[in-house]
Write a protein that binds this DNA or RNA. Structure first.
Length: 466
RNA sequence: GGCGGCAUAGCCAAGCGGUAAGGCAUGGGUCUGCAACACCCUUACCACCGGUUCGAUUCCGGUUGCCGCCUCCA
């Protein structure tokens, strides 16, 4: 079955057919780097990292590009306030971004282009738009002439008349039309700037993505993604710029993720109701956070609260426990026969359910349901008297593969305990054999305080860190 | 005003024409020396009112409530 993707452009799920068979060109709008990212900022990174992983799991060769906006008003303001160079500030927060998002299990993009590395390309691009009549210079600024782009509004499904009513800046001295937007902004006194045919200045916000996507992926890309709030005006403007430039479709599939809310309201820097990834991961395992995000379809809002995250933690723990117990069983029991094919088949059924869910517009909530079914199967298998390493292996491999697609690889807990702890576990076993349960319970309590939880099974005592 | 989303058990969340997946929590039971892990059982008139249909949580119209974009924003 082909993967179905909900395309904002058509407002429908469509079969995903990349331009070139087996290859996917994907562009995800990245952050403006003037602060640590909050968990709302992290959602698209997680969501589209998962999309990428699944496409790769399905055998596609994905080229993934995600930019950094490393020059704009907010950055300049922040740098001024901190008395820091723009470049220093952005470098710092780009590093922080990689750390935060890495902790959340997101892979780096193949290319992380930065605006400041593409100024020349941007100037060239804007010049062509002017030549083609899609842009005009005005007092050192350059604006996009929306009136000349016929498809303006097609992504957000708005007519230009309707858009005009809500436009912030009236047309007037500088702009021909209220909907026109800046491609190039003249520098103010003392601001970081670059030379251009229109004087010293810097790029407007939208132009960078058009330029960098084209530079790194070509005129047309398969998937362009970002947060819901980028649909208008950012992505609408990107389409206007790019399609005016090339005359070709800019992106075939537009994907937009929903927000993370606090008390049912959008988390945003301007509202001040945000939680920084940098801070929260000191209290919450970042993998739990990712698991929590995965529990909801990417286009739907997620309400964030400590309680909900704790519930999610319990769910994830259940999966981890089953996985570790499978490993323990594999390590402690030889092949003892028993059913094989029927179990392999049951695992395959859940794997198929997982794939079916992911094929359907990356429905991670349903994908997780399949993983929970797999968890139950594993737990049932684990209490069988006879197990086979082939089956255990297949369970373990499948768990690893599927959780890997969700960016939730299992931590390796096979690391050894120190000798003293080993000795205590051994002593406890001996005590139990002698039915000296006081001593055995004492040891169990003692280890528990050290964060080591013991569980007795027919195959011996297994331990985990609690 | 324009465009859009959401409303499903105590909580979270799928489903979207044939009488409701999954998770968390609760209660009961089984397993265990006791635990833990685990397993079994337990809980829903799908916001409201109309319509279409043999049949609607699912489609259409309307109502109410909440949220978002139209302004920097993931």
């Amino acid at each position: 079955m082909t993967i179905q993707i909900y395309n904002t452009l058509t407002r429908k799920k469509e079969p995903f057919i990349p331009m070139e068979e087996g290859k996917v060109k994907m562009y995800v709008c990245g952050p403006t780097v003037y602060n640590y990212i909050h968990i709302g900022n992290a959602r698209p990174v997680i969501a589209f990292d998962t999309v990428r992983r699944y496409l790769e799991y399905r055998g596609f060769d994905v080229t993934y590009v995600s930019n950094f906006t490393d020059v704009d008003d907010k950055i300049i303001k922040a740098a001024n306030e901190l008395g820091e160079e723009v470049g220093e500030l952005t470098e710092r927060f780009i590093n922080a971004f990689h750390e935060d998002v890495g902790a959340l299990g997101c892979n780096k993009a193949d290319v992380h282009p930065r605006v400041t590395e593409h100024i020349g390309d941007i100037v060239d691009f804007v010049s062509v738009l002017i030549d083609k009549g899609f842009a005009y210079e005005s007092q050192g600024d350059v604006y996009y002439r929306t009136r000349n782009f016929e498809g303006y509004g097609k992504l957000s499904h708005q007519s230009t008349d309707e858009l005009k009513i809500g436009a912030r800046i009236e047309e007037g001295i500088k702009k021909e039309n209220a909907l026109d937007f800046a491609l190039w902004k003249a520098a103010k006194e003392g601001e970081i700037s670059w030379e251009s045919p229109w004087g010293a200045g810097r790029p407007g916000w939208h132009i960078e993505c058009s330029v960098m996507a084209r530079e790194h992926l070509g005129d047309t890309i398969d998937i362009h993604a970002g947060g819901q709030d980028l649909t208008f005006p950012h992505h609408e403007n990107e389409i206007a710029q790019s399609e005016a430039m090339t005359g070709k479709t800019f992106a075939n599939y537009w994907m937009h993720n929903g927000y993370i809310n606090i008390d049912n309201e959008k988390m945003s820097k301007s509202l001040g109701n945000f939680v920084l990834v940098h801070d929260i991961q000191k209290q919450i395992d970042p993998k739990v956070l990712r698991f929590f995000v995965m529990s909801v379809h990417y286009r739907h809002p997620i309400n964030f609260s400590q309680n909900l995250v704790e519930s999610a933690a319990n769910g994830l723990e259940r999966i981890r426990t089953a996985y570790n117990n499978l490993k323990h069983r594999l390590a402690t029991s030889a092949d003892l026969g028993g059913q094989k094919d029927s179990w392999l088949h049951k695992v395959d059924e859940q794997k198929a359910a997982f794939e079916q869910a992911m094929d359907d517009d990356f429905n991670t909530a349903n994908a997780l349901a399949a993983i929970f079914e797999l968890t139950k199967l594993a737990n049932v298998y684990l209490v069988e008297k006879n197990t086979q390493s082939d089956v255990l292996d297949y369970f373990i491999k499948t768990f690893g593969d599927l959780m890997g697609v969700l960016g939730l690889p299992f931590d390796d807990v096979t690391g050894l305990l120190d000798a003293a702890v080993d000795a205590l576990i051994e002593e406890r076993l001996e005590a139990r054999r002698n039915r000296a349960f006081n001593r055995s319970d004492e040891i169990r309590d003692e280890l528990k305080e050290k964060g080591i939880i013991l569980e007795d099974t027919a195959q011996g005592t297994r331990w985990k860190r609690g």
